[in-house]
């Protein structure tokens, strides 16, 4: 990550605007034990209370790291019922990185978040329609398949 991803200007800019980054050696104490980290590189995204909402394991190139981080931030807002904030960052992810590995999961959470915010089941139908159209082979499309029955 250090030689390829972190020097990338878009990554630097994103970190500067959205994150407070901390690095820890895998064999240090107490963070690896506290967050049950066994392999490197592992990235763990926390809210400002120190609660974990997303993690990745393994190398990520810049074009995958940024959507992965946006997904994590979106899920962080979703977990805390901040649906408008979640929608905003997940929409940005899908607009800027529609072919990224994180995109199908982002589309799933975007739709579910809209449903949670509006209580309108049409949002779930729109979610499965969008997933089937854009990410037909994704596991997230399979996970949303039941919404076809609504």
């Amino acid at each position: 990550m250090g030689t390829v991803t972190y020097p990338n200007s878009k990554v630097i800019d994103f970190f500067s605007k959205r994150l407070v980054p901390v690095r820890a050696l895998i064999n240090s104490k107490p963070l690896p034990q506290r967050f049950k980290v066994q392999w490197t590189p592992t990235l763990v995204l926390l809210d400002d209370q120190g609660e974990e909402h997303h993690r990745t394991v393994g190398f990520l190139a810049p074009e995958e790291l940024l959507p992965a981080l946006m997904l994590g931030i979106g899920k962080s807002y979703f977990d805390r019922e901040m649906y408008k904030e979640s929608e905003q960052v997940l929409e940005q992810l899908l607009q800027e990185c529609p072919k990224s590995d994180a995109a199908p999961e982002a589309a799933y959470y975007l739709g579910v978040g809209r449903y949670k915010n509006t209580h309108n089941p049409e949002e779930l139908k729109r979610t499965i329609d969008s997933l089937q159209k854009n990410y037909p082979g994704s596991e997230w499309t399979k996970r949303a398949s039941v919404y076809q029955l609504l």
Partner: peptide, 28 residues
Amino acid sequence: QIEWLENFDSALSDAKRAHKHVLLDFYN
């Protein structure tokens, strides 16, 4: 370049103040 913080508790304080998320990078 990315400016990595040294102290986890300070990072949380900074995140609260700046309305940001904390990213932990575990590395070897």
